[in-house]
Structure formats: C-alpha cells, structure tokens
Design a protein around this nucleic acid. Structure first.
Lengths: 337, 337
DNA sequence: CTGAAAGCGCTTACAG
DNA sequence: CTGAAAGCGCTTACAG
C-alpha cells in the first residue's frame, strides 16, 4: 500500500506538505505543489480512509436504512440518494431492517459508531425513541417518505394533496360511489391520503360509505382479496381509489376476474406511479410521487446537516405530486349524457 | 465519544487488557474480564471503527456495484446479499454505475482504498481490465448474474439450462413457430439463453426462423415495439419466448393491442419470475431465477475469499432455475386434437 | 511557505 | 495474566 510517506519521499518534501497540498486548505508554493501532485500521480496514491477518518472524525459515508427491497418505491428513491451522495463525494452504506425494530436499533448503533457521517431512514415503527435520541445528539438524520411529526427532518410526498387531487379527478369524471382501499392507518402517509380523500368528498358533498372504506391493506394480494370480498358482500362501487399502485393492480385483477370492465364498469385510481403502472391493462391512472426527487432532496438535506455546525430546526419538505391520467379512469359524464 | 481509555479507567485496568478482553484472541483472567465487560456495558462503549480499520487493515464492509436500480432483478438480489453480509457482521456499501465504465472504475478505486474488504460486482462491460486487475491483486471479488469467462469468481443463473427447459415446455405443448425476443448479445447471459433456445429447437428438429429471432431488445418498451413490428412485417408466431419478464410484458401488451388472445392465439414465455409476473393478465409462465439465493451465494463467496489467505481458484457457481407454469402458455396438443 | 512533532483510538509484540 | 510502548496513516497547531 502506498502511503503519504512514499509520496513525500518521491517528491522530496515532508509528509506535512503532501497532506497540505492534497487538502488544499493551507497554501503551498506552486512549484512544491506540482512536485507533490506529480508524485501522487506517478505512485497512484490514494489516502487511507481509516487514517483520515480517525483523524478527522469524518468518513464521508452516509447510511441509508430501509425496511425492505420488495416495495417498488425504494429503488427509484435509492437511485436519487445514490446519485446525490456520490455527486458530493460521499459513499452510501445500506441497511435493511425487514421492519424489525431490534435490527433497526442494532444497525443504527453499529453505523453510528462506525463509518457514517449522516443517516437517512425510511422505516417507521411505533417506537421511534432511538431516532429521537439520535436527533437529540445532533447527529445528522433525515427521514424519507416516512415522518416523525415535526421533530425530525423529513422529505415526504404531499400525500394529502395527492389523494385530494386524485379523488377530485374521480369526482369530476362523474364517479360518486367511490371505494377507498387504504394502507395501514398506523402510517402517517396513509392517514394523510385518507384525509385527502375525505376532504375531496366533503367538498363535493358526496357521501363516504363506511362499507366502501377499507384500511390496513398491505399488498396486491391483500387488495385483490379485499376487492373480491367487496363484491361478495354485494357492493358495487363505480370507482376504486387504491392508495398505492400495487394495491390498484390487485384490484384490477379482482375486477377482471369477476368479469367487469375497467373503466367501463369500475374506474381504478392508484397512487405512486411505479414503472409498471404504464404497462398494466388498462394503463393505470395514478398520482405520481417523484421518488427520485425525494431521494435527491433527502440526500441533499443530510449533507447540509453534516456540513452545518448550527442547529437547524427540523424541516419537513413536501414534494409535490403529479396526476398521471391514463385509461383506467374514464369519463362518466360523457358516457351518460 | 467513549474510548477504550474511559473503559480502562472505569475498570481499573490498562487499555491493553480492555482490548484483549474484547477481541477474545488472548486469554484474560475471568475476574478481570468481568470488570471490563461491566465497564463496557455501563459506558455503552463501542470501539472506533476507524482506529480498528487503521490498525487491522480491515473494515468489515463489503462493496456492491450494480448498473442501476431500474431492473427488477436487483432488489431481490441485494436483499440476499444484505441479509448474508449482515449475518456475518459486515456492512454493505452500495454504488451504482449507470453502465458508465468511467464511473465504475472510479467507484472501485475509491472503495478499494477506502472502506471495503471485498467487492461484489454485477455490471458487465466490454472492458473489464480493471476487474481482472483487482483479481490479480488477490482482492476478494465476486461477480453476480454477470460473468467474466472463468477468470473471476461468479454466481450466475444456469441460463442455458433455463432457456432450454423453457423452450422444451413450449415445444411439448405443441408450439412450433416460436419467436425469440432476446436481450443484448454482448452479454454472456443472453448468449447462453439463445444457446439454450437453439439447443431445444435442434433437439426437437424444429426450424428456427431467422425472421423470428430478434436480439438486442432491452426493455419492455423495446419489445413492445419489436412485437408490433413482427406483426406489421406479416409474421404470426404461435409462441413468443421473451428472455426476460419485462420484455414479456411488452410483448403481451402488443399482442393484446393487436386484438389477439394469450395464449389462445399466441403463447408467451418469460424469464426471471419477478414479482409482477404473477399479476399480469394472463399470469406469465416463466423461468424463475432465484435472485435472493444468488445474492446469498455471492455474499458467502466474497466472505469466504476475505477470510482465506489461500489463493482459491475461481469458481463459477450455477444456480438452478425453476419452471413456473402459469396461464400465458396453453396446450396446443389438447386444443387441436 | 515548510518541517518536526503530537495525537486521533486502536492492537499486539515485548517484557515481566 | 497484565502493562507500557510502538505504530498503523493521517492532519494540523507550533515554530521557524
């Protein structure tokens, strides 16, 4: 391994000078600098990151904790995080908790005392004391997609607004009997989407039928079964708003299996705009989250926190949504008139 | 930050003893050990990973380089890698190259001199000199899904066998006029799948129509367009073998748009078994790759390489495939008899 | 502008 | 079994 000593010897200067040349923080004579840079190049020298870390207390690495890789929302988000982190010369360290709080605490503890300068977290559990603890120690921490009230920096989709606009679209297209297939209510994002739905229905003075509001649906298999159940219980909504695209896929499958058409008999609206949504039959109308953007913003935020001594107060950044209109929602006003 | 000195003071011993107690490599009196462990616990001491890294030349971190997060095969694979790496007390460092060779070289260089003990790589470019270089330096390196002849350790799907079995299934179901929608021929895995297809066709003494073999198809959008082109050119295969599930989705979309039925008019066979494949309409018959398993094996392999001084010769591990039979392939022999 | 020296927090050969 | 000391490769205050 080539060390700073080798470079110093080759350049005929002291190791201090090599270090100063490379850091750029302290002036070095032009001639000296050139000799050093030439030696660095000739030898292919790269500073030892452990020694630098030990000295500086910085690793230039950022940790990312996500619950799993199954959800189709994470890849795009990681993409944004990865690009941004690399752009700023950081390395990305990844951990996955499978929603296991013990594991999460363990990983955070490890990373904390190891090789990261900041942390991005995308899990959400009922007990978040360990995260608040980190925050209290002023450790650079940002939540993505998930949030913890207003206590910790977070970058999230404007879920309420998204669900509000989506529901308004359905209403404007003449749908009245809207079924909501919602995720786990313990998650803030699903509470917000529910609130957005309610807000739009109230504004339009439409009735929300309790029997058509189903919470705690977690996957496309779940929503498929639940939709079959809706039919079996004798309900027949004219539209279904699924608060995630995978849920929408399950619902489409159920509707088709029962022999109904989309959007002819029942319209389907999703939330997410994952890649597959353009591809299903019929293509899904949905509320697009900018996962890549969300990733970018969260990474920029941690880096900002890392570089600032001051104690910023937490910022909750709402990334706007976009309505993507495809064929799974029709226009009842036209058909019936 | 709590250091080994604090622990030593609290336990009333020297820092050497604390270190020895924690490492477990060198005998320590029971009584002493207990005092130390108690102090460690009381103080919540965690050794500084930089200091350890500097001293030991080991980081207990493993790097992973993938081309992108778009492909649906990576999440499951990363999942397997992540679980395995963590199980062995390692941390996972992630980089993504967007198929950019310059970036790839840069990241490898960075990681190499930084914080990783071993590297898993899933990119494949024409110029792999930098990987062979690493291998020559005896740096622990494993390729996944991709391979570099027999020179570097690799964990891959048995692509030839998979394509062979898939094609045989089509043939056994009475399909004869089979269209192959294949990926980039510059990738070994697509050459192997092509070879498996050819082998099955030859064994069955069926003709491979050149016009029905299309290579270098890269996405579902590509395969959609190419399938439309096949129809527009006046061909009408009775089955299409797409060498990846996303390609199969594009093909299904094209077939449906042209008003044909699957598998009634045309059967579709995929390769991958990504999660979505069970969900499309009709559910896709496909050749399942065990991405999770592949991830696990590759991680186990790097760790083995890291822990062995000896110079293992490269092992190419073929992970078996599984035929997943769903509704996108019918049975012509029954229909026509 | 430059060099010699201290020190970051560990581990381990050396001495006892 | 245990302690004092050297050294891993850096950075930076100190002195010149």
């Amino acid at each position: 391994m080539i060390t700073i000593k080798d470079v110093a010897r080759k350049a005929g200067v002291s190791i201090s000078t090599v270090s100063r040349t490379l850091s750029g923080n302290i002036p070095v004579a032009d001639e000296t600098r050139n000799k050093v840079l030439q030696a660095v190049k000739d030898l292919g020298y790269q500073p030892n990151a452990f020694a630098q870390g030990l000295r500086n207390g910085k690793s230039r690495a950022i940790g990312l904790i996500i619950p799993n890789f199954r959800s189709l929302v994470f890849p795009q988000m990681i993409n944004g995080i990865s690009d941004t982190v690399n752009k700023h010369g950081y390395t990305l360290v990844l951990s996955k908790t499978e929603e296991n709080l013990m594991l999460e605490k363990e990983y955070i503890d490890n990373l904390r005392h190891k090789l990261i300068d900041g942390l991005i977290v995308s899990t959400a559990t009922k007990d978040s004391s360990h995260l608040l603890e980190l925050k209290k120690e002023k450790f650079p921490l940002v939540l993505v997609i998930r949030r913890l009230e207003d206590q910790v920096d977070a970058v999230i989709t404007d879920n309420l607004q998204g669900a509000f606009e989506g529901t308004k679209l359905l209403i404007s297209r003449g749908y009245k009997d809207i079924c909501l297939m919602n995720g786990k209510l313990e998650l803030d994002l699903y509470r917000c989407r529910y609130a957005g739905f309610e807000k739009a229905m109230h504004e339009a003075e439409l009735e929300i039928k309790k029997e058509l509001v189903r919470h705690d649906i977690d996957s496309w298999e779940d929503s498929y079964r639940e939709m079959i159940r809706v039919f079996d219980e004798g309900y027949f909504p004219d539209a279904v708003f699924a608060t995630s695209d995978p849920k929408a896929f399950g619902i489409m499958k159920a509707i088709k299996e029962k022999g109904y058409s989309i959007p002819g008999d029942i319209a389907v609206l999703g939330f997410d705009n994952i890649e597959m949504s353009a591809l299903v039959d019929p293509p899904l109308t949905t509320i697009a989250q900018s996962f890549y953007q969300i990733g970018v913003r969260s990474a920029e935020r941690v880096i900002k926190l890392i570089n600032s001594k001051r104690n910023y107060k937490p910022v909750i950044e709402n990334v706007p949504v976009e309505l993507i209109i495809r064929q799974s929602v029709g226009d009842k006003t036209k058909i019936e008139s």
